[in-house]
Design a protein around this nucleic acid. Structure first.
Length: 568
DNA sequence: ACTAAGTGCGCG
DNA sequence: AAAGCGCGCACTTAGT
């Protein structure tokens, strides 16, 4: 702990008036506390950042960082106490773990940043933002990390915090989004924008056609219940109106109905209303919730950032003089499984760009299609159907990888906790789950109790089976993101027209979108190749960092230019 | 009129 | 109603 960046600890003054700042050497806070008024706080941060390049210890970057970005300040390193509290509180590999505290509940993370620049929220200090509380929590977390058996948890906390920096930077910069292209797509598919509440022309046409072919003028394809009755009256005996089931039926009404559902989805999820609400000045600004998914994946809030349909991806357009670099990993999760389980045979199968072909070459299954079903089934816990039938073949060929996920499933079924490679732990079973299990072992338990308990146990086993893989893949992605950010910030300034990405990124390459195993970078056109190299080098660095001493291929598909937005 | 749960579908 | 994981959002429906 003697090398490394200095630290700066930041919290509100006890009377809520201004900030208390303490700077110090790594691992120790040596300087005297300094009281900085709200008014001059941003400038103080700017000065400390350029003087010390410290690690900023703050309660939550979600509220702390956006005003700084708006003031043109880029932070290099941080430690987000709220996010790390959630990790350390649940970590089973830690004894003692960080004591859970209502002060550090994650709910606050979902709040949007305070509107004014560093204005005091009346209860801000009481919710854990006071300097004393920040310092006390920092000391607890440092002690917990120091007591950990190795540095993996510290790496996870650092990566989670850097992820939080990236998340706020991406929200600030926004995804370059062409309203014109998006509108073109809408008009092409739906027809001109209808009056509010009205049906677009293409949907109205399809509705008429559905009515005619079902012989039911009153059919309402927007209401599953009524649609189901209409279908039954027409002799189509489906159990639900979901696309998958309808697609199996041969009837002249099905084609227009499926098309209607497709257009209805486009209209309601990403139509003109969505554009009006979420795209301003050709920027889409989603809010990311770092670690918002139990496994450590990110979630998002508002605008459905992680569910943008692929058909709209071509609305992602670079500013003039700028371009896009898109990259995604094929089959990240099985590659991660191979490495975390140190399964040499599976890592060999993962060599090259298509893991499924490698599985075929291994002799486990005969076709690529079978390989895909078998591998997905192994990670998701399939027991029946095509997939369930193929999984046992993998056990023979990849015993270590299968042993790891099978063990995770067993632990989950027994009510235990599993962890990712860096140490993020799964939630403990909840009260209802425990109750179902204990009821089944009661003296007077019936068969129904037992089968229900067994079913719940298996559900939980599938969850923990997937947790270790999905969560470790999320850790790889987090490291990748951090490495990309580091390399982009090292690129020289470029002479291009200013982009619309805000004061920090107007002339600097920046991450614009992150989607589990995929990134899009917005960069000056002249830097496209350098950025592509940086993104590739970052992936190699992430792999080396997460799996030291074990060789595994995690190759990228990298695209530059107009097509960068949409993966193959 | 408002809320909560269910349905269906987009993403990985 | 995906066989098998994790999400968010819009809409309908059932309940108050």
């Amino acid at each position: 702990m003697t090398n490394g960046p200095a630290t700066v600890l930041v919290g509100r003054a006890a009377d809520g008036d201004g900030w208390i700042v303490v700077a110090g050497e790594p691992g120790a806070l040596t300087r005297d506390p300094e009281l900085v008024p709200d008014k001059s706080f941003a400038e103080r941060v700017r000065a400390l950042e350029s003087e010390l390049a410290p690690r900023w210890i703050v309660r939550s970057l979600r509220s702390f960082y956006p005003p700084l970005l708006a003031a043109g300040i880029l932070l290099r390193r941080a430690h987000d106490l709220l996010l790390c509290h959630a990790i350390l509180r649940d970590t089973v590999a830690l004894s003692p773990a960080v004591e859970p505290s209502p002060l550090w509940l994650r709910e606050d993370v979902e709040q949007t940043a305070a509107p004014g620049l560093f204005e005091v929220s009346s209860d801000g200090a009481m919710r854990g933002e006071s300097f004393d509380e920040v310092r006390a929590e920092w000391l607890r977390q440092q002690a917990a990390l120091a007591a950990a058996p190795d540095s993996r948890l510290a790496l996870l906390c650092a990566a989670e915090s850097t992820g939080a920096l990236v998340a706020e930077e991406m929200t600030a910069a926004g995804v370059p989004w062409s309203r014109a292209v998006h509108e073109e797509i809408l008009v092409e598919q739906l027809g001109p924008r209808p009056l509010p509440g009205g049906r677009p022309a293409a949907m109205a046409r399809l509705a008429t056609e559905i009515a005619a072919r079902l012989g039911d003028q009153a059919v309402n394809p927007d209401s599953p219940q009524r649609l189901l009755r209409s279908l039954h009256r027409a002799g189509i005996f489906v159990e639900s109106t979901s696309r998958w089931e309808l697609a199996q039926i041969e009837h002249p009404a099905i084609a227009p109905l499926l098309q209607y559902k497709k257009l209805a989805r486009l209209l309601t999820a990403n139509g003109w209303t969505w554009l009006d609400e979420w795209v301003h000045d050709d920027r889409f600004r989603p809010v990311y919730l770092v670690g918002g998914v139990v496994t450590g994946r990110w979630a998002s809030s508002g605008g459905g950032a992680l569910q943008i349909p692929r058909q709209l991806r071509r609305a992602v357009r670079a500013d003039p003089g700028w371009t896009l670099v898109g990259a995604d990993v094929a089959q990240l999760e099985p590659r991660v499984l191979a490495a975390m389980s140190q399964d040499r045979a599976m890592a060999d199968a993962a060599r090259g760009t298509d893991l499924y072909e490698g599985v075929v070459r291994s002799g486990a299954v005969a076709t690529r299609e079978e390989a895909k079903y078998a591998v997905l089934g192994a990670m998701y816990g399939a027991t029946t159907g095509e997939s369930g039938r193929l999984v046992p073949r993998l056990r023979a060929v990849f015993p270590r990888a299968m042993g790891l996920v099978d063990a995770a499933a067993r632990t989950g079924e027994e009510g235990g906790v599993v962890s990712t490679l860096l140490g993020r732990s799964s939630p403990r079973p909840d009260g209802a789950w425990l109750q179902a299990q204990s009821r089944a072992s009661d003296a007077g338990a019936g068969g129904a109790d037992e089968s229900r308990a067994r079913s719940r146990a298996r559900d939980r086993g599938r969850f923990t089976r997937n947790f270790v893989v999905q969560g470790t893949a999320a850790e790889w992605a987090l490291l990748w993101l951090a490495e990309i950010r580091h390399r982009l910030n090292g690129l020289p300034a470029a002479s291009v027209p200013a982009s619309a990405s805000g004061p920090v990124f107007r002339s600097r390459a920046h991450l614009a979108l992150f989607l589990h195993d995929e990134v899009i970078v917005h960069c000056p056109a002249e830097q496209a190749e350098a950025v592509a190299d940086a993104v590739r080098a970052a992936a190699d660095a992430a792999t080396a960092r997460l799996f030291p001493g074990f060789a595994v291929d995690i190759p990228l598909d990298v695209r530059i230019g107009e097509d960068a937005g949409k993966p193959a």
